[in-house]
Structure formats: C-alpha cells, structure tokens
Design a protein around this nucleic acid. Structure first.
Length: 581
RNA sequence: CGGGGUGUAGCGCAGCUGGUAGCGCACCUGUUUUGGGAACAGGGGGUCGGAGGUUCGAGCCCUCUCACCCCGACCA
C-alpha cells in the first residue's frame, strides 16, 4: 500500500472526550471516528486490524468445526415474542416498526433467529451436533456507551450457537468452544483469564467470561494467584473455613461495645445518620459491628436482607441463591408501606420475611436501624429479638476471602475487560420456541443449546489497552495494521525512491503486509506516524544512509536498529521473517 | 433515569464588565526544505449547538430545547 494514495488520518491530539489509552490511540491513529454516541466509523487502519482479529476468530471457529452463516440484524418481533424476550428485554433492545406497522428490532444477540433457523433446517438427530456462527454487527441501546468501541452501541460480534441431542453432548460442544476461545485470545497476544460468571439476561445454567486483565476494565473479578480460580465479583461465592464455622470467637468479639450478659436492646439517637459510615462515626462503633437492613422488592414480595455494615449486597447472588426471578432495591413507597424509614430500617418488629448473609450467623449484639427516624438500636441479637427466615451467601466477595478452589489460598480483586462469553443454555430457547429434532427412538426432543460470543471491536481495544507506550500503539505483529513500513525520507531524491520501491516490491512479493510511506512529508512525521500505528518493522532509506550504501531496519517494540547494505534485500527479508513470522 | 459538566474553524482552546469573533495545530498557494511532528510569505474557512426573549446592540444575560462527556443506577 502506497500511503500517498491511502486514507491515513492520524492526529497529533486526541479529542477531549476520549478517556482511556485505547480510545485515545484509536482516534489518534485514525482507526475510528465517532458518528454518534456509541456508533463509529472504522477507517481503513481500524478496519485492517479488525479484519485481522476476525480472521483469527474465523480460523479457530472453523477448525473447531463451527460453520459460518450470516443472519439479519433486523429481526421481526414475532420471533422474540415466541421466546418471551420481547417483553423481558428492556430498553436496550432498539425497537421500531416497518411501513406496515409491524414490529421489528435490531438484533442485540441472535438466539431467536438461529434457533428458528436450525429448527427449520435440522430434523434428525443424525444431523447433530452442529455449531454455527456469524461475524456481524449487533446493536444494543446501551444506557451509557463509553471508551470508544470498548462499549459501543453498534459493534461487531462473533456469535456462535451449538445444538446438541443431550446435555453430555452439549458439554462437549461447550468444551470445544472454550478451548477455541483460549487459542483465539492467545493468538491475539492478550493476557486474560476465563472466569466463572453469571448468565444474566441470556439465561442458562453455566457460563464463563473471558476477561482481559486491564486497569480500565469495567468488571471487577476475584482471582486466586495460587490456583487458576477466577470469577466475576457478582458471583464469587463466599466460603467459610471449617475453623471459622466452628469458632465461637464471634460471640465475644462482635459485640457493639456494650456488655453482653444482659443483651438488652438499647435505643439511641442517631440524628440524620443514614449511611453505615455516618452511624459508625456518630456512635464510635466499628462499621463491622453494624448490620445493614436492605429492603428488597422481589417476585415473592417485599423482603429484607441483613448484611454486615462493611459488606456490599450482591443482588445477583441473592437472586440466584434465593431462586428469585427478580429482586431490586425497594422504592420509597414500598419502604414506607412496611412501616419503616429509609436509612433507619432494622429487623426488630419488622413484619416481613427477613433473610441474612451467612456472615451474620455468628454475630451477636450488633447495631441496627430502629424503623424510626433518627434512632438506631444497640445490642440486637437474632433469634432473641427477631427471627431470620434463612441464611444465605449474598454478599460481595472482598480481598482476602477464602479461595473457593483451595481453602488455604485467598482471593484478590482485579479489573477485567470482558472480551468473550460462553454460555451453556440448555433447552431454555428450544423449549420456549418449541425447536427440536427427532431422536433415534422416533421421539421429538428439544435441542440442547450453547451460545458463545466475542466482541471483535472490544478485542481490538483491549489489545491496544494492553499494548501501548508513550509513542503509541504496540500490537503484536499478527494484529498490527501493517507488518512492515518502508520509509523514504526524501521522496524527491530519485535514488532514495528507487531503493525504497525496490525493497517495498520485494516485501510485497514475499507476501508481507507492507506499506510504502511515499507521502511528500518530512521524515519526522513519517516516523511518528509509523510508531503511533505500531508497525512492527520500519525500514528507512534516506540520503544519509545511502552515503554509506545502507538502509536501516528498526523494530517498533524495542526501537532497536540494524543496518543493512542497500542491496541486501535477502538480509532484510530474513530478519523480518525472524522477527515477525 | 438521577447528579455534575461541556458545546466558539477539522482538532486543541481563548474570548474580561454586553460594543466589528480570535490563537495554536491542520488545510490551500508559492519558495526554500527533507533522519524525529520544518521555515518564510500569502490565503481560505464560523448561522459561536438550536429556538425564543431582554437590549440601540448578545458568543457573553434570561427561558426553552438538542447533542455530547463524566459519576451513579442499569446492562450478554
């Protein structure tokens, strides 16, 4: 590619609204431009990198036996009504009507379409298992798109769906995809972890997220450095060691600074102390001696959950462990209906079902709200002062918690960018959409399904987030926009240009993705652009080097330079081959 | 959706107390340059996000509105 005839749109400064390294660099390198919030143009450089990621994904999908198709991203409402998601999916689903007033939406994911497709084409167990995939735009009307293509509303996604005759077979399909994902992200040069995750809106029983470890990640994950345990903080189980469970030490140590024996509830004034921090400060009582009472609105009615003051409730875990369809913080109206006051709720004389985090089991004589404005209670004890309907694991994991893999190890929190997600769906969609096949006994069965997504643009952004320096992007050579750039520093110097073109032609002939920077600009601009774009190999030809009959070979990664005789094309090709192939 | 903020040239920004809209970079022409974002000379480019209002006069004040950004809630 001759850059004088290319669309290279590099910028010295990034627009103000770019925050993360990858967002800034992708704009500065002329990879993307914003069209509207969360909607982007991919310029040639960006598209090249995107395609390289796509091709890695495609190769690994194909070699895992998946078959490529393309489905429409405008999808009719009736498919979504069939699965029941037309009403469940929130505003994230962009809906609209066609000229005949029929409902449609932009596909945020394609379970419905693919299930319908496979149901129509596959009739017999003999044609199963099958995994099909596509690489195609998706649209989700995100509440808050941000960080460029990291969280965009329109984005390119690889989505694959497996169809099996039974659960065992489905597990094999899942495993194949899981392994393909590991290979894909390894080939993209990413530092990542596969973590256990919640399956959320898509449903299903089991799932893993592939997380690229990065400071700017939007997800918190808990990892164990000793074993390879990792999980999204939304789901990380809190386990207790046997020691913890046996010990009675809590009885002595968790009192709220008052004498134990009488255990008499004492009402104290706590004017305007709404948060646990305020209560803690005002009463001079440690925050972990306070118990928060959170009022939740669920499909089983209004209920309360007790959490130790220094812990956070995980609604995801609560929903799962209580087996609820939905659970949300109660509204102000709901709270006042049960005769309590926001900020001063407590379990004593509270006439609704009360659940508690496991951590409460061994706590005694703690502080709670009084259900009366500006008052809290000291020396509250469950069993004695109120009844707990059940204990469950529903707090968010924190640093130092016991590793669920090995009780001797502890967990540490870190941030991650979710680049891929694999789900075991079971028969959720095939049941609701009545999609199935005839088994070998001639019986009608529903498909066992799995679905597997990769955010292609997000992989690009994550790779840049992990691979950059003060000069710019530093992608691995299989993702870089070009492998080699040939820079003649003086385009008007005939000798320089002849040598440059000869080298360029030879790299082209040998199958390299090579650029010739024949723009009539000064050398400085060309060096800066090449380094900003992160082209792994830079070959410079200028009047200076030609005085010595040499050209210069520079690596972007180390910025190390090597000199070659200007006729030593073979030497250049060999070194390039060694470095990037 | 709640809280905060920003809209002035392609990008980054200045514009005081209301009085003829500016700077740097980028762009165009010419000349000289060409190994680290060149120099000189000349030039083009703006409904000051939009609508309405106050005023002799509004980029600046008032009202409404739109877009975008940040924090939160939310979300494969």
């Amino acid at each position: 590619m001759k850059l004088s005839q290319y669309l290279l749109a590099t910028l010295k400064e990034a627009p103000n609204d770019a925050e993360t390294a990858s967002h800034k660099l992708m704009i500065r390198a002329g990879m993307i431009r914003k069209v509207a919030a969360g909607i982007y143009n991919f310029l040639p450089i960006g598209l090249k990198v995107l395609r390289k990621v796509e091709n890695i994904i495609r190769e690994e999908m194909n070699s895992a036996g998946a078959i490529e198709v393309m489905m429409p991203y405008v999808t009719p409402a009736d498919l979504w009504e069939k699965s029941g998601r037309w009403n469940i999916y929130g505003k994230e689903l962009l809906r609209f009507k066609d000229r005949a007033d029929r409902d449609f939406c932009l596909g945020p994911t394609h379970e419905e379409v693919v299930t319908d497709l496979v149901d129509k084409e596959i009739k017999s167990y003999k044609n199963l298992p099958i995994t099909i995939y596509q690489i195609q735009p998706k649209f989700r009307d995100e509440i808050r798109p941000r960080f460029g293509v990291m969280r965009a509303r329109e984005f390119i996604m690889k989505d694959a769906y497996s169809f099996d005759i039974d659960e065992n077979s489905a597990d094999l399909s899942y495993k194949k995809m899981f392994e393909a994902y590991n290979r894909i992200f390894e080939r993209c040069g990413l530092e990542f972890r596969a973590v256990e995750a919640d399956s959320g809106n898509i449903g299903g029983s089991f799932s893993h997220e592939f997380m690229v470890l990065a400071e700017t990640g939007e997800d918190l994950i808990m990892v164990c450095d000793e074993c390879d345990y990792a999980s999204n903080i939304e789901t990380t189980p809190v386990v207790f060691t046997q020691d913890d469970l046996n010990q009675k030490k809590h009885e002595k140590n968790s009192g709220a600074g008052r004498e134990m024996p009488e255990n008499k509830i004492e009402k104290v004034s706590t004017p305007s102390c709404i948060t646990v921090e305020e209560v803690s400060d005002f009463l001079k009582i440690k925050i972990n001696k306070i118990v928060k009472t959170m009022i939740l609105s669920t499909n089983q009615g209004i209920e309360a959950v007790l959490i130790r003051g220094d812990h956070e409730l995980s609604l995801t875990k609560y929903k799962k462990n209580r087996d609820l369809e939905f659970a949300d913080l109660a509204t102000n109206e709901e709270i006042s209906k049960i005769n309590t006051v926001k900020g001063f709720s407590g379990p004593v004389n509270l006439d609704i079902n009360i659940f508690a985090d496991n951590e409460l089991r061994n706590m005694t004589s703690y502080v709670t709200g009084s259900n009366e404005k500006d008052f809290h209670l000291l020396n509250v004890n469950h069993e004695k002062d109120f009844k707990i309907k059940g204990f469950l694991d529903c707090r968010q994991s924190v640093d130092g918690d016991v590793c669920p893999g090995y009780p001797d190890f502890t967990l540490r929190s870190t941030r991650g960018i979710e680049v891929g997600h694999v789900f075991k769906l079971g028969t959720k969609y095939s049941d609701s959409m009545k999609a199935g096949f005839t088994d070998k006994n001639g019986k009608d069965m529903n498909f066992y399904m799995g679905c597997y997504g990769i955010g292609v643009g997000r992989v690009v952004a994550a790779a840049i987030e992990q691979n950059n320096d003060e000069l710019g992007i530093r992608l691995p050579s299989n993702l870089a926009p070009f492998e080699v750039i040939v820079i003649p520093t003086d385009t008007k110097n005939e000798k320089v240009m002849n040598v440059a073109i000869k080298i360029y032609d030879n790299f082209l002939k040998n199958g390299y993705d090579v650029a010739l920077d024949d723009r009539p600009d000064s050398a400085g601009i060309k060096f800066k652009d090449s380094e900003l774009l992160g082209i792994p190999i830079q070959i410079t030809i200028g009047p200076k080097s030609l005085e010595k009959d040499t050209v210069e070979f520079k690596e972007r990664d180390s910025m190390k330079k090597n000199e070659f005789k200007m006729d030593d094309i073979e030497g250049l090709l060999n070194l390039a081959n060694e470095k990037i192939r």
